[in-house]
Amino acid sequence: MLSNLFPNIDVQDFWVATYETFYMTILALIGTVIFGILLGLLLYMTTKGGIWENKYVNWATAAVVNVFRAIPFIILILLLFPFTEFVVGTIRGPNAALPALIIGSAPFYGRLVEIALKEVDKGVVEAAKSMGAKTRTIIFKVLLPESMPALVSGLTVTAIALIGYTAMAGVIGAGGLGNYAYYFGFQRREFDVVFLCTVAIVIIVFIFQFIGDRITNKLDKR
């Protein structure tokens, strides 16, 4: 059926491309969660009045976050070529896209994490302090659980931006649906390929949005 409607599609290639998009998105998301939460926590904890109040660390972290958010993603990939080659050993394929994807979206997610943490009731943090909690306990048992719905909905937004980034990365050789649409659709003027890739990406975005919303609602006991 697929081959009737879309004569130029190679089913095998299409599934590989879809798989690669998922692969890049999920792995980049894992990296983004780790680095984003670290950045967000660092911003929140070192801010004025924070538990680790430190003007310099806060300023430096904010500077890194702002600089990397200011660089357009497509430029960031090019800029990171030497770094990618050093870390991954190649500049082609889904794995080569990961450093750029993570570095591109972690600062964005870091800001969302910071906002989520700021929403946590100060009184609850204070209550934990009054019970004699260690800072580690405050982070893992108060700050993160109490901001979890916002952390997850922020991650949903980030994931969707990431899917867009994977398509851009695809155009310069990272694989995935973006790559497939560009090389096999656009360059060969076979627009049914472009169209099907678009549909596939939209469906993937919807899947992420749906799962994200479900988890957010389930977590929120307020």
Partner: peptide, 17 residues
Amino acid sequence: ARQEIGMIFQHFNLLWS
């Protein structure tokens, strides 16, 4: 020492989660 000093608050300050 704080573990031996209980405190209660006007706005309760419970963990909603």
